[in-house]
């Protein structure tokens, strides 16, 4: 299933931060992991991911370092910072408020779907 792009862009930051909260990753790994976890609903383009990662890094939400962990070659890994964790919390709260509002509206119009 392909999902309209405008629906995902706003939440991408949140998804990336959530991924990094579970463990440090490099870019390719994030895209891979995101596809797996979302059962192929989110196919994040590298062209969207890297500018976002670099912006988050310059805002101090994440940090990068080079390391050889899962692969033979050194990779640029990212890790979440304290500020990043705070931002994630805020984004999650926003998201919950938003989705429950959407669900309420959708739920109220159940008959329309049938």
């Amino acid at each position: 299933m392909k999902i309209d792009k405008s629906l995902t862009t706003g939440s991408t930051t949140m998804l990336i931060l959530r991924l990094l909260k579970s463990k440090d990753m490099y870019g390719y790994q994030m895209i891979d992991e995101l596809e797996k976890r979302s059962e192929n609903i989110f196919t994040l383009k590298a062209g969207t991911l890297y500018p976002l990662l670099h912006t988050l890094e310059s805002r101090g939400m994440i940090e990068s370092y080079d390391a050889k962990i899962d692969s033979v070659r050194p990779r640029k890994y990212y890790r979440i910072t304290q500020n990043g964790k705070k931002l994630l919390k805020e984004k999650q709260a926003e998201w919950t408020a938003y989705t429950s509002a959407v669900n309420q509206v959708l739920g109220g119009m159940d008959y329309a779907i049938v």
Binding site: K45, A46, G47, T48, Y50, P51, H54, T55, S58
Partner: peptide, 20 residues
């Protein structure tokens, strides 16, 4: 191809790397 439009990616990265 999977990487997306290089000009757009470059422009966004440029924005992320303004001197501080």
């Amino acid at each position: 191809e999977q990487m997306g439009d290089p000009v757009l990616v470059g422009k966004q990265l440029d924005k992320a790397h303004r001197p501080k």
